[in-house]
Nucleic acid binder design. Structure first.
Lengths: 132, 132
DNA sequence: CGGTATCCAATGAGATACTG
DNA sequence: CAGTATCTCATTGGATACCG
C-alpha cells in the first residue's frame, strides 16, 4: 500500500481542522501562538541556543515569570527544547526544535508587519480620533 | 530632490521600530494584532464586505460584544471600514482596507499553521505530559 | 543563575438585558 | 439588525521574596 507523504498528511490536517469552528482544538492552539511574548521569543531563538538570561536581555521588559512561563508552554508544545547543564551555577539553554523553526517565518512576519506598518496605523488612529 | 519610494520608507520604518525594545510602540501594535479574534476576523473578511451577522455566523462562538469590539479596534487602526446603510433595520457592512489586505497574509498564515501542525503539537504535549 | 511560589492589580471576555 | 450598557468571573501578568 502507498504510504501518504508528509505533504499529503498536512493537506489532510488542514481539511480536518478549521479554526472558524467552535470547539475545534486549533482555537486553543491559535490562542497559544498569539500569547503576548511568543512573537518575540521565537524570533529571539532563531540564531541558535540562548540562555535564559540572554533571552531576558534581548526581549526587554519581559518579566522572569512570563519568560519562564512562555518557554515552558513552547517546550510542552514541541517548539523549543530546554537543556540543563549541571554546573554551579546551573546553565539552561533553550533552542528551537524543527517544529519551532517552522513556526519562525510566521512569527517574524507578524513582528515585521508591526514594525513596518506602525506609521500607517498611527495615521489611521489620528484620523479616527479626530472624527466629529 | 529625490523623493523616497514607499519601499524605502518601509525599510526606514523597520529600522526605526524594534519590537525587542521596551517602550517601542510596536509592542502595543503587536498585542493588538495578537488579540484573540483578529486572526479569525481578518481572514473572514478577505472575500469582500460582510455584515455583522454574517461574521458572527462564520466565526462560530464569538460573542456579539467581542466581535463589535474587535471590529472597532480594527477600524480605528485603519484595517477595516465600517459602512452604515440607513434602512429599517439598519445594515452595517465591514470591509478590509488596503492596509487590512496587507495584513491578511500574515493572519491566514498563523491560522493555517495552527490547523496544519495541530497534530504534531498534540504529539509533543502527550510526550511532555508522560515524562517522569 | 534559573526557577518557584505567592499575592494582587489589570484586563479579557461571556451573559444578559435594553435601545434606535 | 446592530450596538450599548452593566455585571460578573476568569485569566493574565507584574512585583516581590525565597529556593536549588
Amino acid at each position: 500500500m502507498a504510504t501518504s507523504t508528509a505533504a499529503q498528511r498536512r493537506e489532510q490536517a488542514k481539511r480536518d481542522y478549521d479554526a472558524f469552528l467552535d470547539q475545534c482544538p486549533t482555537r486553543e492552539l491559535l490562542s497559544r501562538l498569539t500569547d503576548k511574548w511568543v512573537a518575540l521569543v521565537i524570533p529571539a531563538l532563531v540564531d541558535g541556543p540562548q540562555r535564559h538570561g540572554q533571552l531576558a536581555q534581548r526581549i526587554a521588559g519581559v518579566s522572569q515569570k512570563m519568560l519562564t512561563q512562555t518557554l515552558r508552554t513552547l517546550e510542552r508544545d514541541g517548539l523549543v527544547t530546554r537543556t540543563v547543564t549541571a554546573s554551579v551555577p546551573v546553565r539552561v539553554d533553550y533552542e528551537l526544535t524543527p517544529l519551532g523553526h517552522e513556526l519562525f517565518p510566521v512569527m517574524i512576519a507578524i513582528k515585521n508587519w508591526a514594525e513596518t506598518h506602525m506609521d500607517r496605523v498611527f495615521e489611521a488612529r489620528t484620523q479616527y480620533d479626530a472624527r466629529p
